[in-house]
Amino acid sequence: MTIRLGLYATLAGLLTLASCQSDEEIKRQKYITEGILLYKSNCANCHQADGKGVAALYPPLAGSDYLANKDKVICLIKYGLNGPIVVNGKRYNRPMPAQLQLSDLEVAEITTYIYNEWGKETGLTSVTAVTPILKACETNAQQNPAPASAP
């Protein structure tokens, strides 16, 4: 009897665990699905759908050592970038426009997609993780705005 109860308890525990994981997994997949769409409409013009960038104009995300600077990446998705950067030993110097219309959640979704696709990550970068990072660089961005891309 006790054995059977124990078995049920274990099973119930396993089930809870499984459903927990799958909640997390469902959330990750939601992030990635949204992230793909947002990437296509906001990033792929320059960085390309396959993340390989364009020649020496726009740096790659696929196989990019720059992804190691995750906080910087999160900030530049929203606030853009100005001045030269080095990616995989190559110098790129083309301003990246800010995308101030992106919400914290959208930045989190794009980040999740990029890091799952090209950053060897398997988890999600949640909006709660992204918000304080964006807050911190917002002040920076206001003091040092990325250039307007318009003529």
Partner: peptide, 9 residues
């Protein structure tokens, strides 16, 4: 134009 982020790339 070179700084165009939309269709030019």
């Amino acid at each position: 134009f070179t700084s165009c982020p939309t269709i030019c790339p």
